[in-house]
Write a protein that binds this DNA or RNA. Structure first.
Lengths: 150, 150
DNA sequence: ATATGTGCAAACGATTTGCAACCCT
DNA sequence: AGGGTTGCAAATCGTTTGCACATAT
């Protein structure tokens, strides 16, 4: 099962052990801070910066430190459970799941949109053919204005 | 005349006043630090981070401070003479000229490549049609592996 | 029991800002 | 003369790290 699906499957349930299970499956020690961080990501669903993620996690485990969240994201990232996206100025964003496609950041509402795989792949192919450059857009966002804000 | 051309035209000559002229044309006070920064950009041609740019400029005006270079880039940017590009982790890059197309950063050699306008425009159009998102990629780079490093 | 994870504070790199002195125009 | 510009030092923001203590297995 892909991690996105795994996450999606767990997201509906209210079982407190979801995150814990997920951690163990991926050979991570199931500590309270990690569980809280992962649960925050599961609950929220979208992309989050570390500061917001920390606040969310702290609603379950108040003494979690931001540094711990950074380290947690680091290990979750190593295990392929989350991905980070560079977003220009601001802090980078974190989301559940392994490598995904190309992300676009709305300059107005700051929301994250995933660009359609087909479109992105055609683009990558064209860039490859045109100048031999192999785009690997996994961790870099683009900027623009989303449908809602236009 | 477009700024890129303007820059290109000046770049060949060795006239010390090139940068000075360019500054005056754009209603900037022609101070020594500004001239040095602009000349460094003209000489180098490509995209530069502030630290490198400062070092280059200091070869002409040794006492220039990095903070000054940041401020100079700010004003040049306001006047449309330079553009900055966010490049993931590292510092952002600065290059001559107004808004350009989409830039790709080689993960291996760290060099900057401009993606072909036609390709990028088709991509933007497709994203627009597919999900209504209007991409404005001016200031965000993508990542990948360039033809040389592949 | 041991390796691993944690909180905290301090270091870090990139960028910005307050301020007094300075220099273009 | 006058206001924008500079250098410097200090503040800021996001992120990383060293260390003594706590915890999961």
């Amino acid at each position: 099962m892909r991690l996105q699906d795994e996450a999606a499957a767990l997201k509906g349930q209210n079982n407190v052990d979801d995150a814990e299970t997920m951690l163990r499956t991926h050979n991570c020690k199931a500590t309270a801070p990690r569980i809280a961080v992962l649960r925050a990501l599961l609950r929220h669903g979208g992309a989050l910066d570390i500061a917001s993620l920390t606040k969310l996690a702290q609603s379950e485990v108040p003494e979690i430190h931001e540094a711990t969240v950074y380290r947690t994201i680091g290990t979750l990232s190593d295990r392929g459970m989350v991905t980070h996206v560079h977003a220009g100025h601001g802090p980078s964003l974190v989301r559940l799941g392994g490598d995904h496609g190309l992300i676009a950041l709305c300059r107005t509402c700051n929301r994250v949109t995933e660009l359609p795989t087909a479109t992105v792949e055609r683009f990558i192919l064209e860039a490859q053919e045109a100048i031999g450059f192999t785009l690997e857009p996994g961790h870099f966002a683009l900027e623009g204005v989303c449908a809602n804000c236009a």
